[in-house]
Design a protein around this nucleic acid. Structure first.
Lengths: 208, 208
DNA sequence: ATTATCTATAGATCTATAGATAATGC
DNA sequence: ATTATCTATAGATCTATAGATAATGC
């Protein structure tokens, strides 16, 4: 009953993850999580005491997984343009693997300040590191006339915007863009969209 | 007591709008709406019977106000590049005036298929009209070598993405981008961001 | 003896309605 | 006589806990 212990706790966490990502904190129900996990709802309180605690575990875990892509990007050493391409692609692929994550995180940081603070605590150091490396590289390209003058903050925001939106909108609108498409066609569209984003960003950076 | 009637109904609608935009359908509470409106909660049922009905009125109204900007854009007759600028700026200004609207609408269409259907019914005809006018113009520019080959769908999605994200992110992150900024500084940043979006889009369209 | 699980239920909250009361129009 | 408003409350749902029961480890 000791190893079974870990398993139940894990099953609950997975059920909670699914429920919270689908519904958000406020609309997620403890009973629904229990049902997804196939255990009595009192089990959730046995392991996690409060809904809040269960949520914190999921939210922190998701924010951490999000921060890992920045770490991954930070490790590479590439030319400026290859770096931009890598940033766009890495981010795009992450959102493709976690399509519900952006809207979930967004809603929770908007609705509760503590969640935003947690996110900033975890993400900011890694983001700062990338900025500190990319900003001089960007300014060098601008000085050399190979990149149009842009602020790195605007650039970062545009990259995130385009990649995230692809999936936020797509979830609801895919059936409308590609009516009756099967999974292979959807996958093809996603790949097209990925390269389109890369090209769009790179082109927007070209000097006049 | 006949004109007072209309007024109370209106006050409730305004309170409901604020509550729904802040919290979304599921997290909005009838009691909270009543409190915002300064009336007994039974008044909400007297005028609107169910929470669902009250929500529908607000949601439909918001989607309609959203669809109006497309109508507005559709009325203009301009050159291709001026049209792009107009689309970006109109959209940006609309979101600036209604900063909570995008996330609200997004959440409701994701969580309930009927809401998406309503949105599509109202927005699609107007969007189609713009597409039908813009697509030939775009293809002409591409054929003439004045615009890089892009699909109009990708372009539209990128414009929406960048404008919407500006405000979705900004609501939560402004304090972080401009720590301790007053309203005038925030307004300046928003205007900067507006022109930055226009330039980014136009530049991304330039031919190789 | 401890750990894991379930059933039952308390207590809070939320939507919706019933029924009383006051205010207006005929 | 109708319309607008309030109070009280039914009925549903949700979180959290208490207490019983079964299963494991010593």
């Amino acid at each position: 009953m000791n190893n079974n212990d870990i398993s139940t706790e894990q099953i609950i966490l997975e059920a909670a993850e699914a429920e919270f990502l689908d519904k958000g904190f406020g609309n997620a129900k403890m009973m629904a999580i229990a049902q997804r996990a196939g255990v009595s709802h009192s089990m959730l309180h046995y392991y996690f005491r409060k809904k809040e605690n269960l949520f914190q575990m999921i939210f922190r875990q998701k924010v951490q997984s999000l921060s890992q892509i920045f770490e991954e990007i930070g490790r590479q050493h590439l030319s400026f343009f290859d770096m931009i391409r890598l940033v766009v692609e890495c981010q795009f692929d992450f959102v493709a693997r976690n399509p519900k994550l952006p809207l979930f995180v967004l809603n929770e940081i908007v609705s509760k300040k503590e969640n935003l603070d947690l996110l900033l605590d975890i993400v900011r150091p890694k983001l700062t590191e990338i900025f500190e490396r990319m900003e001089p590289a960007l300014n060098e390209e601008i000085a050399g006339g190979t990149v149009r003058p842009v602020k790195i903050r605007d650039l970062a925001m545009n990259i995130i915007s385009m990649n995230v939106s692809t999936f936020i909108f797509m979830t609801s609108i895919m059936e409308n863009i590609l009516p009756g498409a099967d999974d292979k066609m959807k996958e093809m569209y996603i790949q097209e969209r990925r390269e389109s984003n890369v090209q769009f960003i790179l082109n927007a950076l070209r000097p006049l």
